[in-house]
Each structure stands twice: as C-alpha cells, then as structure tokens.
Design a protein around this nucleic acid. Structure first.
Lengths: 232, 232
DNA sequence: TAGTGGTCTAGACCACTAC
DNA sequence: TAGTGGTCTAGACCACTAC
C-alpha cells in the first residue's frame, strides 16, 4: 500500500502523517512505521524528525558511494544551495584536454559555483566538461544538483570516479567567497567522473571549508567492503 | 548491556530467551528486540526462529579497505619506517575514557610515532589504547606495523573503523618532526578502530604531510552499494 | 504551540524448532 | 508440545520542526 501511495506522489513530496496512514489502513502506528523503515532503508523515503516523511528522487540515478554535493547535504539534514560565480564557454587548452581526454581546442564548458548548506558557504566548486556532452546547457540550469540535471535532462549517469584530497591554503578570492581568512586551511578535492561508456565526463576542483565540512569514512572488513580511503 | 553479556559468552553460544532478558533488564520485550536487531545487523548475533539467538563465529575476511600505514606504503612501492617519539603508560582522563569506552582512570598506553616512507617523514601518529588489551607491550615492539603486531602477538584483528579528515596547521613541534614550515597545511586524520567484539581498540590522531601523502578514493556505484566517503 | 517523527510499554497471538 | 523468535496492537510520552 505504501508503494502504491508513493507511486502517486511527485518526488520530494510529503507523505500523510504516520498517525493518519495508520488509521486509514487500519494498522497500529508501529506497524506502519516498520513498513516505512523498510522503504527508508531502500531509500525510497526519507524521514525528517518533526517535519514529515518524504519521497526521494528517482532510483535510477541514485548515487551510492558517489553522491553529489546537494544529495550529500540533504542526507546530513541540511538544505543545499548554489550560487553561480562564473560560467564560460571556452576551448580546451592542453591541460583540460588531457584530463577530459578530448582534442585540444574542443569546446568545453567551465563554471564555478559557491555551494551552501543552510545558506552557509561550504565549498567553491569548479567544474569542467566537454560542451558536446551537454548541448544547450545554460548557467541558469545549474542552480541545483548537477548530477540530477545530467540524469533528468541528458539521461547520463556518472557511475564511477576517482578523487584526491589535499590540504591547501585558499587564495584571497576563494577565501572571501567562503567567508574565511586566508590563514585558514581548506581541503581541496580534485576528481574526475566517468559515465557508463567510460568517458571522462567532468573534471572538478573543489575547495571545502575544513571547519564546517567533515570528510568521514567508515571501513569494514566484512561482509561488504565499504569504502576505501587509501592511507588508513 | 547486551554487548557486555556477549563478551561473557563463547562464540556460537545461545543468549538467554528474549522474554527472560527483558524481565532481567526491566524493559519491554520489543525494546530488547530493537537492541538485538542492531547487533544482528552488525553481525555480532544471529537469530534462529523457534530456536534462539546466538553469538556469531569469527569472520573469515581480512583487511580490505582498512589497512595500516606500513602496508599502505608498501603497496605504493616504498619502504615503510617508524621512529618512536614518545611512549607512556598513563591513566585515562575523561576524554580518552569516553573515546575508548572504558572507565575513567583505567590504565592506557599512549605513544607517538613518526612514520616514514623511504626515510622521508610522512606522518606523525599518536595512538591511544587500553593497556589491558596489550599486556607487556613495550616501546621497542612498535618499530613496525601496529596491526601486524596486534595480529601476531595478541591474536587481535581490527575489523572496522571510522575516521575523519580535516585540514589543519601543524604546531611547531610537529612541523619540525615532519620537516616542514609551520605555514604549510597538513591533513589531520582522527579515527577509532573496533575489534570483533565491537570494543574500541584504539584511538589515533595523525598529522600527514599534505604535499607528500595523497588521499585518494575510488568510487563506484556498482555492484556493491556500500562505499561511502561522505562529501564526495 | 500544534503537528510531526522517535521511542517505549505490556500484552497478545503466530510460526518455527527441538524433542 | 513446550519454548523460542516474529509480528502486531493501542496507547503513552519525548524530541524536533515550523510557525
């Protein structure tokens, strides 16, 4: 019954309150909750304490290990935001071409966004991708999750990636965007994402506020290997 | 209470019936069951319908995502090294006791080591563990891999852990150990490791040279949906 | 402060096991 | 068939959200 109900709702919509559903379906609230528990584990629903229970985004493109900023912030119980700082069409110079595995001079799109969580600046993110992969992409399209956009508009799923973390000092411009002094160390994350055809789809360099954004890993040897932050 | 009880039982032993434990601990049976549920998920217990609930037998698997410094350096094709900077027996103050989940005042061992790769300083690592877990441990034993030592001498496998990464500036002493200026940002890694009994076995704080030691992750959405380097 | 999810209770009956 | 885990009930109160 829950699944049928979810089917009738748009993504992100609130379910009726647990008490109401329990009465409607003539079960105890605890019983209803156990059913909801299962769908929460399957990530079809998310609970927000004191607020409600909500449907999630479509399952096709659901990031598992690999999630974007927006989704990650949501899972942390905050509201993601985005502010476009720069958006440009340009030609790939040598470094970009090598990273993206395209010919020098091919058109690329490069943009820089300030990403926020509950309106607080968290990270400055610069993304570069071949223009041919995202025809018609406009700056205005990028005020939310890039991954969602790729999936919904272009039917593209980024299925793997590599990234590297390093500590750096921010330059003056980045520091002012993030609202921190230039003396405060940040975490730089450089990464590439691949799509199903093993194309390098995008290259990202991001500078995170180290004081606000904790990178954590959970490691387990059995039964299902969980993550692999080399160096542990 | 369940964890303590499990500690007293051999592997594969039956727990007392749920109804009995609920009465003994003065909770509703459903409440007890929820606690058992958690340990079943963690694979410390298994249920057998109509029969009972049992402690599990040790797991087969070895290190996957979780490897120590020595092993990691070897995999990178370098020669690991270690230099003891400090080694002390002391009593757990409140913070340490809470982290290690032991009573305040219990004896602990704390040591700080400089770890090298091909004789170059890479990281200053401070480890704290309950003294009772490693009887007879001497500073001289710790010139190599701690994990190897735990396995070979004490028969202990650390099977899971969590860690957190953040960018920090080194203090003067640490900077001089690492051979860097105090103006160069480093990566701090704070982590705990658990053994099979879900005991917190050790707590580590490490400061890595960001310029020499790259933290990388590889993420894949398929086939095993577990990887979870938050923030990627 | 009203409304939401989060947790717990004390009891009932079902399903399965071990004999 | 006695004893075990599995599921459900109807209610209570707590914690958090959104206003």
């Amino acid at each position: 019954m829950l699944l049928s109900l979810i089917d009738t709702l748009p993504e992100g919509a609130a379910l009726p309150p647990e008490r109401e559903l329990a009465v409607r379906w003539n079960v105890a609230r605890m019983t209803l909750r156990r059913a909801v528990d299962e769908l929460v584990i399957e990530e079809l629903l998310v609970r927000r304490h004191g607020s409600g229970t909500y449907t999630t985004r479509p399952k096709v493109a659901r990031w598992l290990g690999m999630i974007g900023f927006s989704e990650d912030i949501r899972r942390r119980g905050m509201r993601p935001g985005s502010k476009m700082l720069e958006f440009r069409h340009q030609k790939a110079e040598r470094a970009a071409a090598r990273r993206l595995r395209i010919p020098v001079g091919d058109p690329i799109i490069a943009f820089t966004r300030l990403r926020l969580a509950d309106d607080l600046p968290m990270v400055v993110e610069r993304t570069t991708m071949p223009a041919a992969y995202v025809p018609g992409l406009q700056a205005e399209d990028l005020n939310g999750s890039l991954y969602d956009l790729l999936t919904t508009r272009y039917g593209i799923d980024l299925i793997s990636g590599t990234s590297r973390l390093e500590p750096v000092m921010p330059d003056a411009k980045t520091a002012s965007w993030l609202g921190i002094p230039t003396t405060q160390p940040c975490l730089a994350l450089h990464g590439v994402s691949f799509d199903r055809r093993d194309r390098v789809f995008e290259y990202t360099s991001a500078l995170y506020r180290g004081d606000r954004y904790a990178f954590t890993t959970e490691l387990r040897t059995t039964p299902t290997p969980r993550a692999d932050a080399k160096g542990l």
